[in-house]
Design a protein around this nucleic acid. Structure first.
Lengths: 113, 113
DNA sequence: ACACTTCGTAAGCTTCTGCTTACGGTAAGC
DNA sequence: GCTTACCGTAAGCAGAAGCTTACGAAGTGT
């Protein structure tokens, strides 16, 4: 779905810091920006990207805007990741048996060509 | 620990395409680059980043280098994600009860001017 | 009505990033 | 030994991304 947006959004360290700050609960923009190494408008821009990725949502509260983590984007990312996980494990196991030492811990020292 | 590298690596679309190509099994660089919209050196550079992120590994096979998916980096990313998942769900539930309509059901009825 | 707070957005600039071409190094085949 | 195939790396460049300052809009309180 939109797992690609979520990945791109969480790639930036500053933006990830914004996102992780919301783990302690919903917060308005000013509170998020306080104590961060960038300006408040920068935080707003990051929040916009996070919102477009479905990672956060917001609702107005007076003159402020309270942001909070939205599981929707996280779920998409998780789904994509799980799609890899099982397949990656088995493929890695196969590789481990084929070339021990570099991969997992297989004990078949069959060399190929 | 190294989930940040994995995130940054998988953020780029082309690099993600390289990574997803390895899902069909281990492949040498040339085979990966064949049919891709970028040159072979570009693929090599992407593989380097993916390797540093712990997402892929490789072993030489004659004059070629066979790359395959390494669950190590994927696992780190998964761990970080799961750390959020539960907390995000409960927090989202709390938000849903607090302002029904925006969070609880399905869509974001964001008030946009 | 006026002042103050909170926030989003536009413009501009600097820095980072991904791609290409060119080159060197290593292993296999004749 | 010589040539060919495969791959990684360096240099250089065009495009993108993030940050700052400046401004405008919306809401609250006096």
């Amino acid at each position: 779905m939109t797992y690609d947006r979520a990945l791109a959004a969480l790639a930036d360290p500053t933006r990830r810091q914004v996102f992780e700050r919301l783990r302690s609960g919903p917060q308005p923009v000013g509170a998020i920006a306080r104590g961060m190494p960038v300006s408040r408008p920068a935080v707003s821009q990051h929040l916009k990207v996070l919102k477009e990725a479905g990672l956060v949502s917001d609702h107005p509260e007076g003159t402020r805007r309270v942001y909070y983590i939205d599981p929707h984007g996280l779920g998409a990312l998780r789904g994509w990741l799980d799609q890899f996980w099982d397949q990656a494990l088995s493929a890695f196991q196969a590789e481990a048996e084929r070339a021990p030492g570099s991969a997992g811990g297989g004990h078949n020292m069959d060399r190929e060509r």
